[in-house]
Write a protein that binds this DNA or RNA. Structure first.
Lengths: 102, 102
DNA sequence: TAGTTAATTAATTAATTATTTAACTATTTA
DNA sequence: TAAATAGTTAAATAATTAATTAATTAACTA
């Protein structure tokens, strides 16, 4: 497991997470949002996957990447700790709010 | 302004933030918690300060560093967005919880 | 005011990172 | 089964980063 903090330190990788927040995507689709090459995207995806921030699914010759929201929550907890909150209360908040919003 | 994401990608700097969460400290005090030299601590502090994660105060020949919780909240918001929450609702949650806890 | 203390800045070095092009692997399709 | 498609891996390179020791700055103190 690679460091998720190193993973999100790169702005392209943060942008990939925001893209995957909207919908699951293949490497080719993701690469359309960037200037750089498909191999570069592939490496960014590997780093995100190895740090557990995204999940990979093979479908035929495609790979579909999706956001791992649980990991995002876990990282969020680092900051929540600075306000004296923990993962549990934070998660309850997020899940309750979701019900209200819909 | 340097990237706060680059700043927190280093584990020593994350540890410094956790130390400052407990209490304000001088570089010398902080360096007692690490193996590496005072100049190395000074550089880490500069990076954290330049990314707005900590605040500096000069008192005589000492410098006192403190955590900037607002910046932590701002970064937390990146992750909150993945759960469809925004800074405002998150901050309200954190502040209300604080009242309850005390 | 000379010496001490607290901290930063400078110069250097070794390690890591992001990117490229080229080569390869796996899967589908004609 | 040959060709096409989707993607990853390899090798090379340029840029960035974390650390060190040495030098410097600023403020206090005897």
């Amino acid at each position: 497991m690679e460091s998720p903090w190193k993973a999100i330190s790169d702005s392209s990788r943060r942008k990939i997470l925001l893209l995957l927040k909207e919908r699951d995507m293949t490497p080719t689709e993701i690469s359309k949002h960037f200037q750089f090459s498909l191999p570069a995207v592939s490496i960014h995806l590997r780093i995100l996957k190895n740090s557990d921030l995204i999940l990979e699914q093979k479908v035929g010759k495609n790979r579909i990447y999706s956001l791992n929201k649980e990991k995002a929550l876990e990282m969020m907890n680092f900051f929540a700790g600075m306000w004296d909150y923990n993962l549990k209360s934070l998660k309850e908040f997020l899940e309750n709010q979701k019900v209200v919003k819909r």
